[in-house]
């Protein structure tokens, strides 16, 4: 039988050769469950930041702002001139000047609700929505400089890039966390397997005496640890997924942290954690067992 088939099918009589008692049972199940629980959150973090980066990137890439900073008596004329330029610029889908109320709303978080817009030298903002491949920002700036001297084009590049980079780094951290969790799980299961092999040296001696091969002896331990890790990870992943499911909705509380979770088919990802934990346990236990059996020969 191949390694995986023998793990899944097993041999009840061979499995009985290794006593079931011992702290390594609890250690393996607990560490697998804890690591799977953490892995679900790391996975949710990675996927959420991926969505966030995509969203920020897409939203900010499709809009730009034109700011008209001119003496009060020229603002209206320059705004109209800028709108005319924009209407004839390829890649601009629409352009509109924000109303006084909209500008007050933008400033309200900093200046409070009763801002006297009319008495302040506030620039006029024009919101530009791009279409297709967008517009040529350099060319547009050149035209505006010639026709609307008070216009400053902000295509969001300056502050979109660090936001997307931050989201990308968060996503990378999530994946690094997943790798570290896998490594820590492998280390813990290896330690538990080595402890079990040491505690069962008499069992190994008897099995060798009666003609057991290394593969048979290792198999008895590998199967047990793999199944324990799989079961523990199943429990941990289910608990983690439940925890994510019951997090507050993003649109209720708002903010990034409340958007942590899975969407659509991403809910299937936690299902991959128990088999992955089983694979980690299979490889780490088999490596530890073969090495220990070689040392004991």
């Amino acid at each position: 039988m191949s390694g995986w088939t023998s793990v899944l099918v097993g041999d009840p009589r061979a499995d009985r050769m290794v006593p079931k008692t011992g702290f390594t049972v609890q250690l393996t199940v607990f560490s697998s469950a804890a690591m799977a629980f953490l892995a679900v959150f790391a996975l949710a973090l990675s996927l959420a930041t991926e969505r966030l980066a995509d969203r920020w990137s897409a939203e900010l890439a499709r809009t730009s702002t034109l700011r008209i900073s001119a003496p009060q008596d020229q603002i209206a004329a320059q705004t109209e001139a800028a709108l005319r330029v924009l209407q004839t610029t390829p890649g601009v889908g629409s352009a509109r000047a924000l109303s006084d109320d909209e500008q007050v709303a933008l400033l309200e978080p900093w200046f409070g609700p009763d801002l006297p817009v009319a008495s302040l030298p506030i620039p006029r903002l024009i919101e530009i929505v791009e279409i297709g491949d967008g517009f040529d920002a350099t060319g547009l700036r050149a035209r505006l400089q010639a026709e609307v001297p008070g216009a400053v084009l902000d295509d969001h590049t300056r502050w979109r890039a660090p936001l997307v980079a931050a989201a990308d780094r968060l996503r990378s951290l999530g994946y690094i966390s997943l790798a570290l969790i896998g490594g820590a799980m492998a280390a813990m299961i290896t330690l538990a397997a080595q402890a079990a092999l040491s505690a069962n040296s008499q069992v190994i001696r008897v099995m060798r005496l009666v003609g057991a091969t290394d593969a048979f002896i290792a198999g008895a331990f590998v199967r047990r640890f793999t199944l324990r890790a799989f079961a523990g990870a199943g429990f941990g992943a289910a608990a983690g997924a439940a925890g994510i499911f019951f997090l507050p909705e993003a649109d209720v509380a708002g903010g990034f942290l409340t958007g942590l979770g899975f969407e659509g088919l991403h809910w299937l990802w936690p299902l991959a954690i128990p088999p992955l934990a089983g694979t980690v346990a299979f490889v780490s236990t088999r490596t530890a067992a073969i090495r220990r059996l070689k040392e004991q020969s």
Partner: peptide, 8 residues
Amino acid sequence: RDQIALAR
């Protein structure tokens, strides 16, 4: 080791 096991 496996050959020894088979001989045993």
